[in-house]
Design a protein around this nucleic acid. Structure first.
Lengths: 342, 342
DNA sequence: CGTATATATGCTCACTTTAAGTATAATTAT
DNA sequence: ATAATTATACTTAAAGTGAGCATATATACG
């Protein structure tokens, strides 16, 4: 694999100083067994942090934005992208610190891409990382992450109370309650971006303190490195990843995209593990099988799996016809949070 | 109001020939009584068709894309935008015919904006148009539109059978069935874009035949003007509007955005009419009130409305607290299609 | 004044869906 | 053998949904 960060090679789309340059960035996701993975590339010279792969948009060569994305991804990696979906276009000033040095304004069109678990090794400049390494507070499969109660919620509460005006305080408090399921609220696993932005604003993620330092208005008393609130990525790539996670978590509920990540045949438990990995919660096993069966999402192959300790399971395959039968076929399961050790 | 199409005035973001220029286009939506409205501007010199308002993105002046949009909209119109949401970034080659004449590649970041029904008259170069004028096949409030059965479905079926290869035919047939609820399928009011793209590919909308003519590969035997399949808009603006409609129809089901379009107080029937207008279907009145009540979306004001023939109705207001109580508060109503005269 | 008509609102009821659990089957590890 | 592990069938209580009936309060019009 030869994924390269396009800091070298963006020339075709680079405008004049004061101009605009369009990047196409990709959150390329896969799932191996119980772990959701994101493709990351080695950091460019300036930054010690890894980042999402991205490439330039070539207005003379690329017929569409998506074609542009597919082209450079498949050129630079051995990956064939299956499902591809545009996420959001990011254009905040200084999302790339380079801009401060007089570079052009980089506007990034973010994409979500799904690839099946491959035998690809981490090679060259790219590697697969568990996405909860960057979002530890999002993994509720083993109960509420300790970091939430012990670090994040206390800090966010303090941050909320630290606002200057009273309405500001109340607004901050409400945002924190809503995003982190305080005061009787329930955890919404799709609000990944909301939560990241709160942490950013409160200075609890490394990117925030770095950006603040560059603005020379930093309050350096509360620097938190990646050891506390997940590993950092370059520029605003963690924000893009948050957008991708939220979108994917939402999408599996009403479109059969989960099967873009599965092998051609699979056991129901493997399917459940994949959904749980992406959703960050646990599912009720018996209800899960009833659901996928009665939604017509899968059909039995007749074969049974190689045993993995316990009664052998039947192998299933995706039923593509479901798309024509139901209005919005997906794994519409209530992702329940398991109470842990308490 | 002084909305201007930015064909005049896009200079700040215009790159060199072969470069990229970023436009910010807005689907500005409101609802008056029973009619969903979209803000349109007078066509630029070249086109006889109206279009969405759009303006340039100024990389030196605008801090964020959304700020850029708000800035030029509020400069050029008297409108204060309330809810604003990024939709999609459109970058297909030749989405603007000007590009063929050697202009820069225009990439358009589309936004959905909601404004309350205002007393604003159609004035100057902009006007409010009922969005079903451009999508007559989407309005099922009085049963399935005649155009669907009498014109669209027969033509699309013929188009599907006209594909060269057998798998192509089958793919086309499936897309048509799914999008237009054929063969026992149910109408999904969110698939606005899917349907528009089918009509475009089949050459049933005016834009398609125009674009084809410009490519000089047109089959001009099947030109359909706006009288048959809705009025046309400039460039790809009908596609952008389709995206906005689909997104809005989806969003009202799980976010209380409908209240961005209502007056501060309203009767439940007015609220129902607004939802029906956007959704393009009818709702069961009694269940609708039960739903908005038990979801906690509204609260009574104690006042009653000025009568409009019939028993006076109580006035309600939005309950903003609902956002903190439920995971995804919205008007999650089954938009049923009323069977008409059959 | 009385009747038709229109809208508003409360309530019932059958049916479906959902969350959660019990029970049992078929395998591996020790 | 026995414990542990995974698979799968079935039950049940609670909640939600779709449809309709009944009644209340207004206007329009003879």
């Amino acid at each position: 694999m030869n994924t390269r960060n396009s800091d070298r090679g963006a020339a075709p789309a680079r405008g004049p100083a004061g101009g605009v340059v369009i990047e196409l960035s990709a959150a390329i996701v896969t799932v191996t067994d119980v772990s959701p993975k994101i493709l990351l590339v080695r950091p460019p010279e300036l930054s010690p942090r890894p980042g999402l792969p991205y490439g330039p948009f070539d207005p003379t060569g690329h017929r569409t934005l998506e074609e542009g994305l597919r082209t450079w991804v498949e050129e630079q990696t051995a990956l064939h992208l299956g499902y591809v979906e545009q996420l959001y276009t990011f254009g905040d000033r200084f999302r790339d610190p380079q801009e401060r040095a007089g570079g052009p304004r980089p506007v990034s069109v973010g994409y979500l891409a799904l690839v099946r678990q491959t035998a690809l090794k981490d090679a060259g400049e790219s590697s697969w990382g568990d996405w909860y390494r960057y979002f530890p507070w999002e993994d509720w499969r083993d109960g509420v992450p300790t970091i939430n109660d012990q670090l994040i919620v206390p800090h966010l509460t303090k941050w909320a109370e630290g606002a200057k005006s009273k309405p500001d305080r109340s607004r901050r408090r409400e945002r924190v309650n809503l995003a982190f399921a305080l005061e009787g609220g329930s955890w919404d696993n799709e609000r990944v971006l909301d939560r990241y932005e709160l942490l950013y604003e409160a200075g609890l993620v490394f990117e925030a303190t770095l950006d603040a330092r560059l603005e020379v208005t930093a309050d350096l008393t509360t620097i938190h490195t990646h050891t506390h609130t997940g590993a950092a990525l370059t520029k605003d790539h963690r924000r893009i990843l948050a957008t991708a996670m939220g979108r994917l978590r939402a999408k599996i509920k009403y479109r059969p995209v989960i099967f873009e990540l599965m092998a051609p045949t699979f056991t129901l438990f493997q399917l459940q593990r994949a959904v749980e990995a992406l959703s960050g919660g646990r599912l009720h096993k018996q209800n899960f099988r009833r659901l996928v069966a009665q939604e017509g999402l899968v059909e039995p192959t007749g074969h049974i799996s190689a045993q993995t300790g316990g009664r052998p399971a039947e192998l299933f395959r995706f039923r593509p016809e479901v798309v024509h039968e139901r209005p919005s076929p997906g794994v519409r399961v209530p992702v329940k949070v398991s109470k842990r050790a308490e």
